[in-house]
Design a protein around this nucleic acid. Structure first.
Length: 560
DNA sequence: CGGATTTGACCAGCGC
DNA sequence: GCGCTGGTCAAATCCG
């Protein structure tokens, strides 16, 4: 750009680094020509004069052209600098947004951990806990928390709380840093695993009692022929019950990736449609997750964040939410008693004391006539609110109906830890993103439309969706990052052309996670990978969550 | 043999 | 206070 090429007055190319240089060359050339003319003869001096005048004119015009070109060059330079500046600014902003989101998520995890640690201080039994919770006021409890945190118990969580953000991030939490390791360090079994779990549960109860909205449940409905759907996490079954109103037994699972992980899940078949598996997640992982688990966990985390953000802002927020068109197929169960499972006719009491708010992600197809009573369905692909509309957010995953990939991936992924992914994974992700973009645009442009666009339109639609919405871009970036990370090992970076890295921390702060099939003989056995579809949902949920969190105040929501 | 699952018992919360 | 229900525990059992 610095050096430009210009045509000389003789049609040749003159490299013009500086204006003076060009002028010197021109003068030299003209001088030579003049000398040649003088040496020629002096037959007709008038003709020579005319010729000289012509050359002067040409010279002047050439100079003028050159000045114009150089001015244009200068303008282009300025323009380019401006563009580069804008580009850098945008890059910085994007980077900040991603970083902010990551930090925010990490902070949430750390806060939860801090609460878990502090609430357990000095409490050796549930009775003591109950007494204390009754006696102590909230402020006193907070004070105890602070004292506890500064006392430095033999709890490795504290170190994670006190350490710098980099080292205290959930990604650095490992089973080695968990409570269960105390035994090894002290040489005595002071924290048997089952007691740890009991303590953690009690702590969670405390958290729930003090701040009910922090204990959100995320329920996932998905068509699955297998007993459980694979979510990439390791689970151990610890109980089974026949719940009232459903002949299908409800199974209770506990996350076993880390001995102290408080995350539980319940698995139960839908009474209305046995092919629908309802998985309810509760709790927050306090350990790194396998790649295959992070994406789905992040998905549910986003849903939970949405739920918490909505429920924490009380009825006002819900009213605000209801005023908007939330096409998220969530079922915001706000009942006083936890009802994590979707029941078409279950009433959502609008009582304000929702102890365990539950959000349901319906990943089943809308074409399933057995899924819902007719009165709850419309001709549109969007589910109508199952509960009263004032407290229901609907995230429509109905486009997945035409996509058999989702059930396949979630129900058949028995190789959750297999990092050597099938080459089809990438095509899966492409397809998923196409579908995602397609649905995204479909609903924006025509919420009533139910069927897909033409393939060429799909590409255009995807392009438009990506370029028109920064939230969608963010979501896509996360998805791509995860995909690249999953294919390329643990390096979760996207290198853009400018050399800036978009780093996505692992694991995502999660509220929920999913089962590993490797240690569950009753689970599906066919191979598969959950990643791409989960990523798609992750992106959608992430975008939806961001949209939701910002939309509460702006009365603007997205239809996915 | 170690880890996971099963299953009856136990406990807590809630409603009547 | 009692019964119902959901959730969890833990000994017994199963399985690789």
């Amino acid at each position: 750009m610095e050096a430009s090429f210009r045509k000389s007055i003789h049609g040749g190319i003159v490299k013009a680094d500086e204006e003076g240089f060009i002028e010197d060359i021109n003068v030299l050339k003209v001088g030579k020509e003049r000398k040649a003319h003088e040496d020629d003869n002096s037959k007709s001096s008038q003709q020579n004069d005319l010729s000289n005048d012509k050359e002067d004119d040409q010279l002047e015009s050439a100079k003028g052209d050159m000045e114009e070109v150089m001015e244009e060059n200068q303008r282009l330079k300025t323009h380019l600098e401006r563009i580069m500046k804008d580009y850098r600014n945008l890059q910085m902003q994007f980077h900040e947004v991603v970083q902010r989101h990551t930090e925010k998520s990490n902070t949430n995890i750390r806060c939860d951990e801090a609460e878990l640690v502090s609430l357990s201080i000095g409490r050796t039994s549930s009775d003591t806990k109950k007494k204390l919770s009754k006696i102590l006021s909230k402020d006193k409890a907070i004070e105890d928390d602070k004292n506890g945190l500064t006392l430095g118990l033999d709890c490795k969580f504290e170190s994670s709380v006190d350490t710098p953000p980099e080292s205290s991030s959930p990604a650095n939490l490992s089973p080695e840093n968990s409570l269960g390791e105390v035994k090894d360090e002290n040489g005595a079994e002071t924290w048997p695993p089952h007691k740890i779990l009991k303590t953690v549960r009690n702590e969670e109860d405390d958290v729930a009692q003090q701040n009910p909205t922090k204990r959100a449940k995320v329920s996932v409905r998905v068509r699955c022929d297998t007993p459980t759907m694979n979510d990439g996490c390791q689970w151990r079954k610890y109980g089974q019950k026949i719940a009232k109103g459903n002949p299908c037994p409800r199974a209770y699972y506990r996350c076993t990736v880390a001995p102290s992980c408080p995350v539980r899940k319940q698995v139960q078949r839908s009474m209305e449609d046995m092919s629908i598996l309802i998985t309810t997640y509760e709790g927050t992982h306090n350990h790194p997750l396998p790649l295959s688990a992070t994406s789905m966990a992040f998905t549910t985390s986003a849903a939970a964040s949405m739920l918490l953000s909505a429920s924490s802002s009380s009825d006002t927020a819900r009213t605000t939410t209801s005023a908007t068109t939330n096409a998220l197929n969530y079922y915001l169960s706000d009942t006083s008693k936890p009802k994590p499972f979707y029941l078409p006719n279950s009433s959502i009491s609008s009582t304000s004391h929702s102890q365990y708010p539950t959000i349901t992600l319906d990943l089943t197809s809308s074409s399933s006539t057995s899924l819902l009573p007719n009165h709850n369905r419309t001709s549109s692909s969007n589910y109508p609110p199952r509960y009263n509309s004032s407290s229901t957010n609907i995230l429509n995953f109905s486009f997945l109906e035409s996509n058999p990939l989702l059930p396949m991936s979630w129900s058949n992924g028995n190789h959750a830890y297999n990092k050597n992914q099938d080459p089809s994974s990438l095509s899966f992700s492409r397809r998923s993103q196409e579908i995602l973009s397609q649905s995204y645009l479909q609903n924006i442009n025509n919420p009533k439309s139910t069927q897909s666009l033409l393939p060429q339109d799909t590409i255009a639609a995807a392009t438009k969706a990506i370029t028109s919405d920064p939230k969608f871009q963010s979501a896509l970036a996360v998805a791509l990052t995860s995909i690249i990370g999953s294919r390329g090992g643990n390096n979760h970076h996207i290198d853009d052309k400018s050399g800036q890295n978009l780093k996505v921390t692992e694991p995502f702060p999660v509220l929920c996670s999913f089962p590993s099939t490797s240690n569950d003989p009753i689970k599906c056995s066919s191979s598969g990978n959950t990643q791409p579809e989960n990523l798609m949902l992750t992106s959608m949920q992430f975008a939806a969550s961001k949209s939701k969190s910002t939309s509460l105040g702006h009365h603007k929501d997205y239809t996915l």
